[in-house]
Amino acid sequence: MTANGGDPGDSKSFGGQDGGPARPSGRPALPKMLRRRGVLAGGLGGLAALAGAGFLLRDELPFARHDDRSHLDGRFRRLRLAAPHPEHDPIIVLAQRQGIFARYNLEVSFPTGLVAARDALGLLQNGSVDGALVSVLSWLPELLPAYPGRTAPPLSAKLVLGLQSNSARLLVPRKGPIRKIEDLYGKAIGLADPHASDRMFFSIMMRRKGMNPDRDVRWVAIPPDRFGDALAANEVQALAGHDPVIWQVRERLHLNELASSMTGSYGIRVGRTLGVRDDLLRTDPQAAAAVSLALFDAAVSVARDLDAAASVLSDDLEDMEPDMVLRMLRSEGHSVHPTGGALRAQVAQYIDELKLLGLVEDSVDSGSVARRCCASVMPG
């Protein structure tokens, strides 16, 4: 996500902070998986109460029929998609291992070594990939016609499929004084990437509580292997991130979940979406339809059989036992797959929430902008 580059006291600033003092000796560190693999960044955004949620969930069904290949031409296609840590993504892993891409005559590859949404979107910007799977809150700063601090033109891409809700968590020590969002006034929050969607997600939540997320709290960039040290040394008083890293932090350090994107109406908001290049939509719309259908099938498979998804994921998350992976997946929202009008409505709500942060002008017609940011490619 593009940093806004403003003054730290400005409500439009989303810059990072220094990581704090050097690591004290004898402090507990996080498991080696976090040191070796790094942090999932950019991942899964989404929040706020969802008025008319039942309508949106009903509305998505006609746009997303499971395993509907009748309208496709049967051509074989090779596509490249970008996503942070695809080897940790249950939808991508299942689509590859269960032959779901091949079912739609697709060969889909994912560049390795991507750790943040901005890495994936950068590849899309330079034409190296056909699409990307990142959070809505990472997409919008690159898609909106005007966005503070962005120097490049808007991405020439459209959102076509919601894949799941977000998995953002805000953690605090169990015996500490922080019991609600408002208790974060004057506190420092550690996170691996200050430009990832996790910060924006919780910033919107704070704004709804009457807080200024750039003035009332301090965001501190900390490598994930120092999360435990930073809490123990009181460098930070809370930690923010998303799964699987933040789940492992919660479990190993025995922290309380102050807030998350998985409670109440937040859990039915789409977090991560597939977006594809405009030129692919123009020249080969059936390619976009095929990959959308394949990923939808994979997302449905994950939601229907979390045990199988946990078994597959545990092969790659070597420091997490299968039961720990399963508990993580069960706490997430895997049945949120909006397309068409349902996706546009949720994207419009995100745009309205960016207005709360002063990142989008109040005069902007969120519905019109959402229509420009989204495309319908699934069968009707």
Rank of each mutant, 00 (worst) to 15 (best):
A3H: 13
N4K: 09
P28Q: 13
M33G: 07
G43D: 09
G43L: 06
L47P: 02
A51E: 14
A53V: 12
P62K: 06
F63T: 05
H66Y: 10
R69Y: 07
H71R: 15
L72C: 02
L81I: 09
A82E: 06
P90C: 10
R97T: 13
G99D: 02
I100G: 01
G113L: 08
A116T: 11
A120Y: 04
G122I: 07
L124E: 10
G127D: 02
G131V: 05
V136K: 05
S138K: 00
L143D: 02
Y147H: 13
P153L: 14
L155Y: 11
A157Q: 05
R179C: 01
K187P: 00
L191S: 01
A196C: 07
S197T: 04
F202Y: 04
P213S: 04
R218K: 13
W219Y: 00
A221Q: 03
R226H: 01
A233R: 00
R252Q: 15
R252E: 15
L253R: 00
L258H: 01
L258Q: 01
G267Y: 10
R269S: 09
V270C: 07
G275V: 07
G275S: 06
T283R: 14
D284K: 08
A290D: 05
S292I: 01
F296S: 03
F296L: 13
V300W: 05
S301D: 14
S301L: 11
R304I: 04
A310H: 12
D315F: 06
D315P: 00
M324V: 14
V325E: 09
M328D: 03
L329C: 12
P338W: 04
G341H: 10
G341C: 06
G341R: 13
L343G: 04
A348M: 10
L354D: 07
L354Q: 12
G358E: 09
L359Y: 05
E361D: 15
S368N: 12
A370P: 02
C373G: 08
C374T: 15
G380V: 03
